[in-house]
Design a protein around this nucleic acid. Sequence first.
DNA 1: TATTGTTATACTCTATAACTATA
DNA 2: TATAGTTATAGAGTATAACAATA
Lengths: 154, 154
Amino acid sequence: MEKAVLVEDRGMNAALGNMVGYHLRRASVQDMAGAVAVLRPAGARPITVSVLLCIVETPGITSAQICRVLGMQRANIVQFLADLEARNLFIREADPQDQRVHRLFATKEGEEAARDWLDRLRLHEDRMLRNLSADERAELRRLLELVWSEDDED
Amino acid sequence: MEKAVLVEDRGMNAALGNMVGYHLRRASVQDMAGAVAVLRPAGARPITVSVLLCIVETPGITSAQICRVLGMQRANIVQFLADLEARNLFIREADPQDQRVHRLFATKEGEEAARDWLDRLRLHEDRMLRNLSADERAELRRLLELVWSEDDED
DNA sequence: TATTGTTATACTCTATAACTATA
DNA sequence: TATAGTTATAGAGTATAACAATA
């Protein structure tokens, strides 16, 4: 039996509705919009939260390391670090062993901000996932992780 | 017992790694990058595919309707329609009942292009989800749909 | 008054190339 | 040669406001 193409009727968008990528995109857009909304009053954005969390959780991390962890270009983290630094949320210290790098350490204000921003994100996420059970949320996270954290040797 | 905050150790990124939204974003970015890559040789992009599919699957649809289906602004579809129209993938016909709207119909070339683009996306998606079983793929799609297609009365 | 299609514009995030200083 | 941090720049996608034509 050959691969059967099965197209369910989902009203408009039969083909799109069958693509996981389409739902991935729609869900992520919805999530980002909500995250931006809850973070705005705190003057933060999703990316700045991710960057600050990296510094808080890994004291002494370098900007290049953050970029590798978050999957972004070195050139693009500069603006976000400049913003966080201007608000005294972290400091840079020259590395005595390797003078190319600066090691980043969160300030007390930085740790407080990270806690606040994370609380806001959790509130948003609880609302977004309100129709999913705890098991379903865990399963969703597991499956998503499988999707993107796979070895990409293609 | 109060809500216990449970933070698993995932190496760097304990807090981020526990957020569904983080994995949602990473998975979507990975998916979009792969989709862009497989569509590039065909001169298409994810959005143009979505728009063309709407026209192919719903002959006579208007641009405003496409925007509502795909969740985009009317102003932003103009460029994509102009691109598709320039390649003769659909035609516009004035609606005799409502002279504000143009109804869109795919040409034969449009239908062929939609098939080709969709085949490319399916290939990409099969590769992206190669470590998920059929059941897991269906479950992932179901959960994602629950996330974004919920009533948004917030 | 509301909707359609459109133009113009600004903003965010991303991608690329290049440069310097170090290793 | 390779890496870290940085600057400059272009691109894609999105959001907003405004407009004329029509309902």
